[in-house]
Design a binder for these strands. Sequence first.
DNA 1: CGATTTCCATACACTGCTGTATGGTCATTG
DNA 2: CAATGACCATACAGCAGTGTATGGAAATCG
Lengths: 207, 207
Amino acid sequence: MSSEGSAGTLRRRTKPPTSSSNRTSSRLSREDWINAAKTMLVESGIDGVKVDLLAKRMNVTRGSFYWHFEDRDALLDALLHLWEASNTEPMLAAIKAAGARGDREDFDATVGRLWIDETEFDPAFDSAIRDWARTDPDVAEAVHRIDDIRVAAFAEMFKSYGFTGDEAEVRGRIIYYHQVGYYTLGIRESSAERKRLGALYDKVLLY
Amino acid sequence: MSSEGSAGTLRRRTKPPTSSSNRTSSRLSREDWINAAKTMLVESGIDGVKVDLLAKRMNVTRGSFYWHFEDRDALLDALLHLWEASNTEPMLAAIKAAGARGDREDFDATVGRLWIDETEFDPAFDSAIRDWARTDPDVAEAVHRIDDIRVAAFAEMFKSYGFTGDEAEVRGRIIYYHQVGYYTLGIRESSAERKRLGALYDKVLLY
DNA sequence: CGATTTCCATACACTGCTGTATGGTCATTG
DNA sequence: CAATGACCATACAGCAGTGTATGGAAATCG
């Protein structure tokens, strides 16, 4: 990613199991390392993802890491791919569902829910990746690509709500940019506060 | 900031000139180092701000740095204080001016201008500080404090536009969060595009 | 103009982190 | 049950970055 991390072409002696996420086993899988790296990325930023600290946290030595990955860049590569694969499909599905019947009453139950319970969509992961993108052009390209897709989905939703092309586009941007900013700032309002003002948010953003 | 950077109590042998930003002189001032660090923060993030790289860029050795600053944390401290001092007053003034006559026609000429010409307000600096805040609690506290002040100012503006207390608060958040997200994502739209959709943005956000 | 202060260079010690080489220990399979 | 492969420990080399000690040159002041 930073120097020569191009694609997922890792040469190793043999092939380790690419699936089978057995976290409880004493032996670690490639996915275990990636998941630990994700946690560390969220906590400390991309420069905080260091293999020796990861190994210490997982109670193994770095020898394990360098069997599963060619080098540190390969891990970062895998992290970015994990984000692309996991953190966009659920959101698109929800937006599509919200616009399906063209009824704005569905919005909170489909899209809004994503940012509340945080089970399908992980805003902290999103935010951490976005930080990373600020200083890494390759990551920035990927994030931009995903952002465009998400905004387009919101624009489609607003079209099904009856807005014109241009206004649907603008409203798509506003609701998405607002959501990104909301989490970039870090939410601190109580759930009572959010519930009290929820209707007003919908009024401004949706109508 | 990270370990023991508490306040601005630096002990040095004597007192160097705290102002007089003579960048053209062959001798460097404390402010020169801070400004260079700011550039580096925007380019590479807080972990990219390293004293040896800074010295190399300024064509001096690290010996100079350790005369002006006690350690690296002192520089980061100064960076945060620079941001608080420089990147909030102009914005508050503009928002206040926008709400002064209670006329929404003034908005683009006062507040909107800030994000366009980027002379008084520096969005890239803002964005870089916000990244830093994600992984540093002390910085997060400072950013939260400033954000609250800015949102409150926007809410006041909307009150002068005739909105009720709650709706003014919500609209203040929306327009500010949206702006933060806008720059967090990284703007790519052409100025023609922005001009074409400008009226629609105002319609949704201001009316 | 001599003396003090300001600013920077040089050299050194030290730590954190990466990557590599190699051997050991389980588990699995023929 | 011997052999192979999967997974990890150990040890080493090396670089990047911080901080410190000290001396030297340039500016400034009495």
